[in-house]
Simulated assay, not measured.
Amino acid sequence: MTTPKLLAARAGVAERAVESRHLRRVWGLPGTLLGAVGWPVDWPGRVHLRFGYWWQAHLLDCVLDAQLRAPSDARLTTIRRLVRGIRVRNVLGWTNDFYDDIAWLGLALQRAARAGVEKPGAVDAIARRLRAGWTDHAGGGIWWKRNDDFKNVPANGPAAIFFARLAGAGGEYGDLGRARSIVDWVEDHLLDEETGLFWDGLHVHPDGSVREVEKNLYTYGQGVVLGACVELGSAEYADRAARIITAVDKNLATDGVLRGHGGGDGGLFGGILMRYLALAALELDRPEAAKAADLVFRSADALWANRTTVVGGPLFGPEWTVRAVRPTKDEPERDLSVQLGGWMALEAAALLERNGCTPPQS
């Protein structure tokens, strides 16, 4: 199916394609970069009229993946400029009203610090906001957005990973307990017993009782709970991680290839799950680790096989089993999110490759 180092080369080609088509300064300011949210880039894209806060967090994460794959001073400069670009474009600080957005950026900034680009004030601001986002409504959990009635997995999952990593880096007393409490709350309130997967979230009445459960099953929701369970590491959480991998393979993949969720925000969903499947494949002490690796390799192979080629390099589609098309108007291929999802998937496969994992034979 693939040969050694080929997956790293594919990830590198995806990196160059995204950067050449999407990266722009913020309002012409030196020392800043952001990803234009669409390509071909129109005038609102050139001035970053639409920001896409959490898309930028994943762009930063992808560049950090690339830096681990092939460290360079030039890429470190890109990381610094992206961090500054996010801060400049966000105008009022590091945070916004969406707890999921800031959790994603918090994770990227934690990784940036390990690469040598430290923003301790930003991480601290995000940590304070996330700690304050937990309430007893519906038995616990962090809100999706301030002053809203929704608590969901895509906010709680990355927050749990963030707190677990913060605890390991000497964070505030209780952060590890917060991570465990978040994962346990998700397990208790949003697990679909039939599939072993997690529903999207729930709406809460003012008195704290549950009004409605949103029973959509999204790939990235499974990815972040999987990532949190792997991060927590105990036997109990490892068993949960193994169950999630099995459930994903059975319900969210076809012949080992993850399903897509279209363009827009959905373009990131599969790539996020791929990130945490790869980490599970490397860290999880369970037989299901091999299945996680298989899902990563097969999905990345399908993504690559169905790419199309445009200026700058490969262009990926939102459904990895379907040939990508060159965007002429509003096709999802124009979205930065879709291209980042593809790049993330290839970096996940390259991570396994350089750690000695062998792709399945076709």
Rank of each mutant, 00 (worst) to 15 (best):
L303N: 12
W144H: 12
A115H: 10
A241C: 09
R129A: 07
R240A: 01
W94Y: 05
A112C: 13
L284V: 01
E212T: 06
P360A: 05
K151S: 05
L59W: 08
D335E: 12
L109T: 02
R69E: 11
V26S: 02
A127D: 15
G256C: 11
V63L: 12
K151F: 04
P44G: 02
K215I: 04
V186C: 12
A113L: 07
R75M: 04
D255F: 15
F98S: 14
R240E: 02
D330C: 09
S20I: 05
T246G: 13
G356Q: 12
K329C: 09
V338G: 00
S209F: 10
R87L: 15
W39A: 02
A66C: 00
W27A: 14
K329V: 10
D124Q: 11
F198N: 04
N96F: 06
R131S: 14
L176V: 00
L346A: 11
W320Q: 10
L315V: 13
H189G: 02
H137L: 14
A113R: 14
L92Y: 08
T321Q: 07
A350H: 01
L217D: 06
H261V: 02
D148C: 11
D65M: 04
G312N: 04
A127M: 07
T309S: 11
L60A: 13
D188S: 15
W144P: 06
F162M: 07
G221S: 15
L315D: 00
D192Q: 02
L258W: 05
G208T: 04
R89S: 14
R131Q: 15
L33F: 06
T78S: 10
P360Q: 07
P120C: 11
A70R: 03
E194W: 11
A300E: 05
C229Q: 07
S72T: 06
G260P: 06
W199C: 04
A113Y: 07
D149N: 09
R10G: 14
R298G: 10
A164D: 01
L6G: 11
L273Y: 03
P154L: 01
S362M: 07
G168S: 01
L7G: 03
N216M: 09
P71M: 00
S234G: 08
